[in-house]
């Protein structure tokens, strides 16, 4: 698993839109609204915007449940960028989710048997199904950063 640059661990830098919430499910609806609106402004079609919104909610739910062990007042940062990346430098939406909780091994919560609907496993399955690139990184001090990319075209 990749390591997060320690200089970038306190906050996300150069993000076009950044949300900072407590790890509280009450705020998931706020993030949903912001993500839907933002990725549409970035140029994504409505159906893709909905899928990305679902992936972000699944990621935040996993952070609250697994990284923080339940709702608390610790922070989660969500960054949204419109970037160009990949071999053909295609326009894409980049979403970065940073937490400061327990580092959970992505392998430990990877998608297993969907019939079991194991918490975390289904969320990771959805994230991988919806997004084009998914990368988990650990910080030296604490926390995990999830970077997800969805190409616009």
């Amino acid at each position: 698993m990749a390591k997060i640059d320690a200089k970038k661990s306190e906050s996300l830098t150069n993000t076009q839109i950044e949300l900072r919430i407590h790890a509280n499910p009450d705020y998931l609806c706020v993030v949903r609204t912001a993500v839907r609106q933002t990725v549409c402004i970035f140029g994504l079609q409505e159906d893709k915007a909905e899928s990305i919104t679902l992936a972000v909610v699944e990621a935040l739910t996993n952070v609250i449940r697994h990284s923080y062990g339940g709702p608390c007042e610790k922070p989660i940062i969500v960054g949204l960028n419109k970037i160009c990346c990949g071999d053909k430098n295609r326009p894409a939406v980049e979403i970065v989710i940073r937490d400061f909780g327990k580092q959970v091994d992505a392998e430990a919560i990877k998608s297993r048997d969907l019939d079991e609907l194991r918490p975390g496993g289904v969320g990771v399955h959805i994230i991988h199904s919806v997004m084009d690139d998914v990368e988990f990184s650990h910080a030296d001090d604490c926390g995990t950063q999830l970077r997800m990319v969805k190409y616009i075209t």
Binding site: T53, L54, V57, T61, L117, V122
Partner: peptide
């Protein structure tokens, strides 16, 4: 209007 895997688990 929206359903995530937590809600889906309840339906399952």
């Amino acid at each position: 209007e929206f359903l995530d895997s937590s809600g889906l688990a309840s339906l399952v």
